[in-house]
Write a protein that binds this DNA or RNA. Structure first.
Lengths: 210, 210
DNA sequence: CGAGATAGTCAACACCGTGTTGATTGATGC
DNA sequence: GCATCAATCAACACGGTGTTGACTATCTCG
């Protein structure tokens, strides 16, 4: 971008702050947060280490800022989830789980770093749990309505079921993305997850359609 | 313990090594490994920091040693898993999952620390995955035989299903133990997990018994 | 315009945790 | 009584974090 108007040698604060975030996200694509020094983040943004502290009070604050943006997208994504569970339960659930996977894939670096930081940082933990809550709440609502219209068996609390299945998604997807072992082939992950969801919500591969 | 025989001022190496492990496990009950310094481990074992390095080359080595002992127990535990799936599928699965939970509860500190370290340490990752593999292999075998005797529907690879469900167990149990949110009440965890297992393996709450 | 506020910057410092070196000590065996 | 070996630790080197205090550029308002 070309400088317009009077030449200002000094770059604005917002640009610097953004440069730190961009640098952080790029480096998180290669390495864990622990292996990235504040020096590197500062260098990447063209500033010195003490100046970094002018913008963020720690590395974790940077992660928090990145995670914040992801959370916003998650909430938008959850709002755009399919609603046609009565007419096409299997398709609707599969598309919901597909969205969950897509968010993880799109923000792989931030998600991985957040999961690692969750253990030691309460703010990260709170923010992460907020986004999982979004999925769980949506899921709970759908399961409840499927149960009350008689398509899904009861015998288990809808919220418990929703939480269990969403935690499974989180864990299976991180295992797939990090190529852990044991794991599931990436190409089959969506199929495996939706099969488990359908069977454990409806007690069958072919839920009734009114 | 009272000194017997000739008085030896100096304690034996094995005792020291053990004292480090005992100290580590105790401290891991309160704090994460990152928040425990080698100084503390050394102090707890009655030695100086440099001497710690005579016994272990790093903090992670200590965790690895603790984890090793857990792995042994896991393998013994898996060997003792019920085999009466044909006559009482629901009971047998419930007892298997119960054992999984028991191992986590019994070694909560080590398990939590290992999960946190898994992200940065390849050896911890390898060791952890070995124990998950034990559960997954056992589970895969049972699912396969249930599928081939016609009690469980196919449509999904037995190993994929086994891995997915075991990863769910790991994640749900850690969420419960760490009182994360969203989570499942501790008292209902076993019930929730076994319901999901039964439904997704058999496609029903009441598998056929020959 | 000029004085004071405000935003941004960084050299230098204090601190803490890790891992290493090299010298020392007490048992053990020959 | 001498050599060996396991065990020990003071002292050091290093790298990362977070803070201080002084400095500079830009903006603002009388």
């Amino acid at each position: 971008m070309v400088q317009r108007g009077r030449r200002t040698e000094r770059v604005s604060g917002d640009e610097r702050q953004d440069a730190i975030l961009v640098t952080a996200e790029a480096l998180l694509g290669e390495r864990a947060l622990d292996d990235i020094s504040i020096e590197e983040l500062a260098k990447g943004a063209g500033i010195s280490r003490p100046t970094f502290y002018f913008y963020f009070s720690s590395k974790d604050e940077v992660l928090l800022a990145l995670l914040d943006r992801v959370i916003d997208q998650v909430e938008r994504q959850v709002g755009a989830l399919p609603r046609n569970f009565e007419s096409d339960p299997v398709g609707a659930w599969t598309r919901s789980i597909g969205m969950f996977i897509d968010v993880f894939v799109a923000h792989r670096a931030v998600a991985t770093a957040a999961i690692a930081a969750r253990g030691r940082n309460a703010e990260v933990r709170a923010l992460w749990s907020r986004s999982m809550q979004s999925w769980a709440d949506f899921t709970t609502g759908v399961i409840q309505s499927e149960q009350s219209r008689g398509a899904a068996p009861g015998g288990i609390d809808a919220h418990d079921l929703a939480v269990g299945l969403n935690l499974m998604n989180e864990r299976v997807i991180t295992a797939v993305l990090n190529r852990e072992s044991p794991t599931v082939a990436e190409s089959r992950a969506l199929d495996v997850l939706s099969t488990i969801w359908i069977r454990s919500i409806y007690g069958s591969d072919h839920p009734e359609i009114p």
